[in-house]
């Protein structure tokens, strides 16, 4: 895991900063469900994009990996969407 972090330091830094930014946005807009839904969608799209670009840069992008990031992004969005819906 540490080797993985060292190998992809810049990409992981981008991901960690984005996670913190999204968490701060969630806290700032915690009383506005419409904004929270928009932030959740953006977060999921960002993550799918991050995964695809990261693997593309290393020439390791396959259809399976693209599907994996699409499905994880979708799952993350659905988990947030379910709670925000009620």
């Amino acid at each position: 895991m540490i080797d993985d972090l060292k190998e992809n330091l810049i990409e992981y830094l981008v991901l960690f900063v984005a996670v913190i930014v999204f968490l701060v946005l969630f806290i700032l807009f915690r009383f506005d469900k419409t904004s929270l839904l928009a932030i959740s969608s953006l977060g999921s799209i960002f993550y799918i994009g991050w995964g695809i670009i990261h693997h593309m840069l290393r020439g390791r992008l396959t259809r399976l990996i693209t599907t994996e990031y699409l499905l994880f992004g979708l799952l993350v969005f659905l988990l947030l969407f379910t709670v925000l819906n009620f």
Binding site: D4, L23, G51, I65, Y69, V76
Partner: peptide
């Protein structure tokens, strides 16, 4: 495969938010 640690980080953010 994709990065397990990255998936885990994003999922943790979701759990903390909820």
């Amino acid at each position: 495969t994709g990065h397990t640690f990255a998936h885990l980080t994003v999922l943790l953010m979701v759990i903390v938010s909820i």
